[in-house]
């Protein structure tokens, strides 16, 4: 079962191709990070999924429906542009959005206080939303998104504007939802958020998908060629090893870059024969590095596709 399927979706604004033949499938139950630099087409794609924008061409299927209109009650969408009714109280806003998403009255009576409690907003239930701090408004916005207990959550930059405590709270809730079998798609350009949270990433640049892979597969495929080691003894031989291309040393700690074909295990074997190894770490490439790397190479391949 797939939660979202995009086929050859295109959207232009004037001369600018915001989304260019995008194909993607988000399987049900997955936690997908939607990454990309600013202006890559993330929000445009999400808006097309929500039928807020209409694609120029291509097809979309959401939760098995051709149009999101039938599925809206099963989706929680948090737009990039947050918006609440400023003059309404916190509880009323939540209740109203629940009602228009088709949640029954008796369910709302239970869910509204429960979510306000969960998000630490219970004390503010009868305050107008304009009296809330930015972070609290953001949490309320999240509550609005999940009040209908959606099967599919689409979050556009959910962590922006939150303090670390609230980021953790939100992350915990998102992980909980995944455990309940719900599908989550969230966009971000904070790589460490994506790294800690998602199973798979969808990377978009200049309107095109340049990567769609599980995080585990991505890491193992893009093996690192850098090793960090702490050694005791004479380490000068390391530079002379054929598999080593560069060494930077700092006290006893050194960073060793290997040739593309080399195996770090070979290096370790060579080391234990000669010196005492205190610490040996194969550096896992961070999502940040992968991101920068991929976006750079995609820009280099295709410099003319869009005005930068």
């Amino acid at each position: 079962m797939e939660a979202i399927r995009l086929e050859q979706v295109c959207k232009s604004f004037g001369d600018v191709r915001a989304v260019d033949h995008v194909c993607a499938t988000i399987p049900a139950g997955s936690l997908y990070g939607f990454l990309g630099p600013n202006g890559a087409g993330k929000t445009t794609t999400i808006r097309m999924i929500m039928n807020i924008l209409q694609p120029d061409s291509g097809t979309l299927r959401i939760l098995g429906d051709d149009s999101v209109e039938q599925a809206k009650a099963r989706i929680g969408y948090m737009p990039e542009e947050r918006g609440l009714y400023r003059k309404m109280t916190v509880a009323k806003v939540l209740r109203y959005f629940g009602a228009i998403k088709g949640v029954a009255e008796q369910d709302l009576a239970r869910r509204v206080p429960a979510w306000l409690e969960r998000l630490d907003l219970a004390a503010w239930a009868n305050k107008k939303t304009e009296e809330l701090s930015k972070g609290m408004q953001q949490k309320l916005q999240f509550a609005v998104t999940v009040i209908n207990e959606p099967q599919l959550l689409i979050l556009d930059e959910p962590f922006s504007g939150l303090d670390p405590l609230n980021v953790d709270l939100l992350r915990e809730i998102i992980l909980e939802m995944r455990q309940q079998g719900k599908t989550v798609l969230f966009s971000t350009h904070a790589m460490h958020d994506a790294e800690k949270l998602c199973d798979s990433v969808l990377l978009i640049n200049r309107g095109r998908i340049i990567l769609d892979e599980s995080l585990a597969a991505l890491r193992s495929r893009r093996r690192s060629h850098t090793v960090c080691a702490e050694l005791e003894g004479d380490t000068s031989f390391i530079e002379r090893l054929p598999m080593v291309t560069a060494v930077t040393a700092e006290a006893n700690r050194m960073e060793i870059r290997l040739a593309d074909t080399a195996d770090p295990q070979e290096l370790l074997r060579a080391m234990v024969d000669r010196v005492r190894v205190q610490d040996f770490e194969i550096k896992v490439p961070s999502l940040h590095e992968i991101f920068v790397d991929l976006v750079r190479s995609s820009n280099a391949e295709d410099p003319s596709s869009r005005p930068a």
């Binding site: 807020i52 969408y77 737009p79 542009e81 918006g83 228009i100």
Partner: peptide, 15 residues
């Protein structure tokens, strides 16, 4: 509603 950007949230629930 347009200025407070609540419109997009509304449209995620309503046509």
């Amino acid at each position: 509603e347009k200025n407070s950007r609540v419109i997009e949230v509304l449209l995620s629930a309503l046509s």
